[in-house]
Design a protein around this nucleic acid. Structure first.
Lengths: 235, 235
DNA sequence: TAAGATAGACCGACCGTCGGTCTAAGGAGA
DNA sequence: TCTCCTTAGACCGACGGTCGGTCTATCTTA
C-alpha cells in the first residue's frame, strides 16, 4: 500500500477525530479499531504506534473534549458579570451551543445514552469534574463575596453542583429519548424538572429565590419543541 | 459428561450467583462466560438457554440486587419513626450493613470502581432510582406533613436525593481507594465531605439545621479507620 | 555535498480470546 | 414409545492486541 508519512500530531488528531465520528455515531463498543483504520486508510500497527489500547484512545478523546468545554467556559467565569449572572450564562451558553449544532447533538445523545456507552459518559463526567470544579468554585466564592451565596466549602459545593448539573442534563436527555406521543406533556414535565433543579441549586447555594434562571419562559418551550421534532424525525 | 437436570429456577439462580461472585471479584468485562460455566460445570448451551446474552445476565443480577436493597429499606419506611429519623436510619442501616460484611465490601468496591465496570454501577444506580424513588418520596411527604420538610415536588426531589446519595457514596469510596499515607487526614476529609452532604440535603429539604445526622462523632471516625485498615491490607 | 547511520512512522499477517450459534442427544413425563 | 424441555460442546466470526520488519526524513561525518 502507498505509504503516507505525516507529522505525528496530525496523525494523532486524525485518529482522534475519526474515533469521535464513529463513537458518536455507533458507540464505543460497537466501533472496532478496524473501522477507524479502514476509514483513515492506515494500518493496525500505525494505530498502536499512537495509542496503547482502545481505551487509551477514548481517554485522549474525552480529555480533548473536556478541554474544549473548559475553554468555552473560562471567558464567562473571567468576565465582569456578577456571580448569579455567570451561573445563568453558563447554562445559556450550553443551551445555545446545543441548538446551534442540533442535528449533531440529536445523533450523539441517541447513541451516548445507550447502556453500552455508559463508559463514555462516565469518562466525560469524571473529566469535567476534575477540569471545571475550580471554575465553579471561583464563581461561588465571588457570590459569597457579593453576599448572594452562603456556603461553607466552595470546592465541595462546586463538585456537588457539577454532579447535579450532570444529573439535570441526563434527566433532560432521557426525557427526550423516552417514547412520547404528546409533545405538550413533554414540554410541561421538562419545564417542571428544570424549575425543581433551579430551586434545588438556589437552596444549596442559599441564593435569593428566583435568582437562578435556567428557565426562560417562551424561549425554553420553543427549544424543547424543536428538539422533540428533530428527535422524532430520524429513525 | 454426566448430565444433571435441575429445576430451572435453581439453575438460573446458580448462574446468577456464580456471576455475582466473578463480577465482584474480577469485574464484568474481565469475567468471561467461560469462567462462569467452568465454575458451575455446565456447558455454553445451558447458559444461553437461560440468558439471551451476557448483558442480560448483568441485568438480571442487578435487578435482583436492587430488589434486595428495596426489601431491606422497606421496613424502615413503613416503621412508625418520624421522617427525619427514617432518613438517618437508612444511612445508618447502609453503614452497618457494610461494616458487617466489610471484607466482602472491600473487595467489591476495589473492583467496582474501575473504569471497565462503570456499567455495573450505572445499572445498579438506574435500577435503584426506579425501585426506591417511591420509598424516599413517601418519607418526604411524611416530613412535609410533620412540618419538618418543605419541598414542592416530592417525587422529583426524591430522585435528586438518590442522585446525591449515590454521589456521596461514590465520593466516599473513591476517597478510600485514593492513595493515602495519612489515615488522620483521610478521616478529616471524610468527615468534612459527610458534613457538607448533610448540610446540602438539609437545604434541599428545607429541614431544620442539624436534623440530618449521618455523621455520628466518634463512631464514624472508627468506621473510617477500620475500612482504611482493611483496604490497605490486601494487595 | 554526498554517503552512511539513526529514529521513528508505518505496515499487515498473525494470534488468542470471547460472545454467541447450532445441532445432537439425554432424560422425564405422557 | 413419543415428545418436549434441558443440557452438551463443537464451532464460528469478530475483535483487540502483538510483532517482525520496511520505508523515509533527517542528522552526522568525512
Amino acid at each position: 500500500m502507498t505509504r503516507e508519512i505525516k507529522k505525528p500530531e496530525i496523525r494523532k488528531n486524525e485518529i482522534i477525530n475519526a474515533a469521535r465520528k464513529f463513537f458518536y455515531q455507533k458507540g464505543y463498543e460497537q466501533t472496532s479499531i478496524q473501522d477507524i483504520i479502514n476509514d483513515l486508510g492506515i494500518a493496525k500497527g500505525t494505530f498502536y504506534h499512537y495509542f496503547t489500547s482502545k481505551i487509551d484512545l477514548l481517554d485522549k478523546l474525552t480529555d480533548q473534549t473536556t478541554n474544549e468545554i473548559y475553554v468555552s467556559l473560562k471567558p464567562i467565569v473571567e468576565s465582569d458579570m456578577n456571580a448569579i449572572d455567570k451561573f445563568n450564562a453558563i447554562f445559556k451558553a450550553a443551551s445555545t451551543m446545543k441548538m446551534a449544532n442540533i442535528d449533531v447533538f440529536v445523533v450523539i445523545i441517541k447513541v451516548l445514552f445507550k447502556d453500552e456507552n455508559t463508559i463514555i459518559r462516565e469518562k466525560m463526567y469524571r473529566n469535567s469534574i476534575k477540569k471545571t470544579t475550580p471554575l465553579y468554585s471561583t464563581i461561588i466564592k465571588q457570590g459569597i463575596a457579593e453576599g448572594v451565596f452562603d456556603v461553607q466549602s466552595p470546592d465541595d459545593v462546586a463538585e456537588i453542583l457539577i454532579q447535579i448539573g450532570t444529573n439535570l442534563n441526563e434527566t433532560i436527555c432521557r426525557l427526550f429519548l423516552a417514547e412520547r406521543k404528546d409533545p405538550d406533556h413533554l414540554v410541561r414535565t421538562m419545564v417542571n424538572k428544570l424549575k425543581i433543579y433551579q430551586d434545588t441549586i438556589e437552596r444549596i447555594l442559599a441564593a435569593p429565590k428566583g435568582s437562578i434562571q435556567f428557565y426562560i419562559p417562551g424561549e425554553y418551550e420553543n427549544m424543547v419543541r424543536e428538539f422533540y421534532k428533530k428527535i422524532k424525525e430520524d429513525v
